[in-house]
């Protein structure tokens, strides 16, 4: 394993660390590395780093490694970790913040999962609501797996669960404006 020179790494990570602290409202130094978060995390089995290890990377300023991890994308935002942390660290919020920053920096380890959220929001922006059929079709087409889950389609249509046309709200201007206003304030959507 490569040896990390900690002082240089710390200096390099400062800028992003400051962003994480500000945007998440979490001081990583509060974490005492007990691992309770990771012990209960329902997705830990699939992660490349446990949530505690992400906290450790942040504590040491090893931000690139944290931002490039799959963990931050696999996190299901279930809040189990934050609910049980003995130091009241809101880890779920740290995960969320790292994802947002990773996306801003264009370093997205799980492109497909990110794609889903993009399409989701696009649907919201265009229609005011999510058009689930459109979302699933789009996701599977853009995600290069056009037949995935396709077998649910017919029965869903039959059960009245998917409508072929998007639900839109009459005055979608208001929602479009919300997106525009968030962009104006620096939101990268």
């Amino acid at each position: 394993m490569e040896r990390i020179e900690l002082t240089a790494a710390w200096a390099k990570g400062q800028e992003v660390l400051a962003e994480v602290t500000k945007e998440s409202g979490v001081r990583a130094s509060k974490c005492y590395q007990c691992g309770k978060c990771s012990a209960g995390c329902p997705v830990a089995f699939a992660m490349d780093k446990t949530p505690r290890e992400i906290m450790r990377l942040v504590q040491l300023g090893l931000m690139d490694e944290a931002l490039q991890s799959h963990t931050i994308w696999l996190c299901a935002s279930c809040d189990t970790c934050s609910t049980r942390c003995p130091r009241e660290v809101d880890i779920a919020r740290v995960m969320e913040t790292l994802r947002i920053i990773a996306k801003r920096k264009g370093s997205v380890a799980e492109k497909k999962m990110d794609l889903f959220h993009d399409l989701f929001l696009k649907s919201v922006e265009n229609n005011g609501r999510v058009h689930e059929l459109g979302l699933i079709l789009g996701f599977n087409i853009y995600g290069m797996q056009p037949l995935k889950d396709a077998h649910f389609g017919p029965s869903m249509l039959l059960k009245g669960k998917l409508s072929p046309l998007p639900h839109t709200i009459k005055d979608n201007g208001e929602v479009k404006k919300i997106f525009a206003n968030v962009r104006k304030r620096g939101g990268k959507l």
């Binding site: 969320e96 993009d118 005011g128 999510v130 208001e174 997106f179 968030v182 990268k188």
Partner: peptide, 25 residues
């Protein structure tokens, strides 16, 4: 009337302000 999507998981994975603004309406 004319409720909009709350953004669910996608908005708060993307932008914190958007994640608050959508439900706020």
């Amino acid at each position: 009337p004319e409720w909009n999507c709350c953004g669910a998981s996608s908005a708060h994975l993307t932008d914190h302000l958007l994640a608050l603004a959508l439900p706020a309406r």
